[in-house]
Amino acid sequence: MASQQNDLHAPPRALQFTTQGIAPLSRIQHWESHNAKALISLDIRTIDESPLHATELNLQFPSLRLARVQGTPQIVERSESFIRQNPTDVVAVFFALAGDAFFYHRRGHETLKPGQAIMYDADLPFMRGFAAGLQELVLTIPRPLFREFSGGTSLNQPVRFDFGPGAGTQAQELARMIGSALVSEPPADDTEKAVLELFRLIASGGKAGSGTGYLAAAKGYIERSFGDPGLGTAEVAAAVGISERQLGRAFADAGLTPGRYVLGLRLDRGRELLASPAAAGMTIGEIAAVVGFSSQNYFARTFKERFHTTPLQIRKATRAGIQLD
């Protein structure tokens, strides 16, 4: 157990690929080579004779791999013979960001639209196609870990779920965290652990969650909803799918309370707006309302307690070109 915990703190390896500068006739070969090294081995071909254009950002953690993939129309496949030569022993989750895609498997086919994700065992045959181009996030996780998270269940057919607006909080936050990690330099220290625990919630159908996963999902919901002055612990707990007591314990384990976290986020966003040239035309009262305060006086009082200065002083300093600590 100690070695696993140490592994989770190992720094991720970042990789990057682009077809720019590669001779058109060699691009597919290089694209396949990069995916084999960084993500999943794939048999790739274009739909027509147009040159392939593709980019990929990758993060390789000890227990999972993340990617953001963009490309022109193409078909990717893992047939039975290809899998025998290139086994992966991973479960993959593909998050569609733009354009419709088809997903053929041995039991039928699925259509994937933006805001939808599909989870599948990468060592079972499949074919994916992107007639309008490819833009997605990808997560891969070792099959033994998936079985642990899912209670021993094998993924014999694809599972599709939503992660866009209106979808479950866990799925939304999982996609957001993957996307954020790929553009952060470096990613947050707890990224791998949080992604794993959010994935555990989804893989188990919400039956095997941990405090870390619930905390990540709750923070994500709060960050999307903090501007609502009526936001409370009951709403956050319901969105995450746990009781208020469980929510309180998840925050307490991190040395926080839900209420203080909401307040701190509102104050941080308020300070950002006060110092932002883009919000120079907003009054302090308008900024207070935007970040979820129903009272300007309460905003000013708690702001001074937190930052030892007033919103008005921040606004004046910003206009004078003075940066306050």
Rank of each mutant, 00 (worst) to 15 (best):
L139I: 03
K207L: 13
D100L: 03
F163I: 06
E192G: 05
G321H: 10
G166P: 02
R147K: 00
R68F: 12
G99I: 03
G230R: 13
A194W: 03
R78V: 12
R27T: 01
R176K: 11
V138Y: 00
P311N: 05
E173Y: 08
G281V: 03
S276P: 10
G230T: 13
F149G: 02
R65T: 06
V76L: 05
E32H: 10
P87K: 00
P144N: 02
A203F: 02
P12R: 05
E286L: 09
H30C: 09
H9T: 14
L267P: 07
L66M: 02
T310R: 07
A2I: 09
P62I: 04
S276A: 13
P87E: 00
T111H: 14
T233P: 11
A317D: 12
P158G: 07
E56V: 13
S3Q: 05
H34F: 15
S41W: 14
S79N: 13
I47N: 02
H109G: 11
D48W: 13
P73T: 11
R224D: 13
R245Q: 11
G241D: 06
G264Q: 10
F102L: 07
H109V: 15
G179V: 06
E272K: 12
G151R: 05
A288E: 02
P24S: 10
K113D: 13
T169L: 01
T88G: 05
G292V: 08
E56R: 12
S150M: 03
S41I: 15
L324Q: 01
S50I: 12
L174F: 07
T283I: 04
I222F: 09
P142I: 01
D123I: 14
R107C: 11
S180K: 12
P158L: 07
A10H: 11
L134F: 03
R27M: 04
T169I: 02
Q246T: 15
V76I: 10
K193Y: 03
G99T: 04
S204C: 06
K219A: 14
L263P: 09
Q70D: 02
P87L: 00
L215C: 14
A2F: 11
H105G: 06
G129H: 00
A234Y: 13
P187R: 12
T55Q: 07
D7Y: 14
L15Q: 09
N6M: 07
P277C: 07
N297V: 15
G71E: 04
F82P: 11
A218M: 03
N297G: 10
R269P: 01
R266F: 02
A38Q: 09
A98G: 06
A38F: 04
L182V: 11
R176H: 11
A67E: 01
A278E: 08
A288N: 09
D100T: 10
T283P: 00
K113G: 12
Q170W: 01
I47V: 15
I22K: 05
F161Q: 08
N297Q: 14
A98H: 11
Y214W: 14
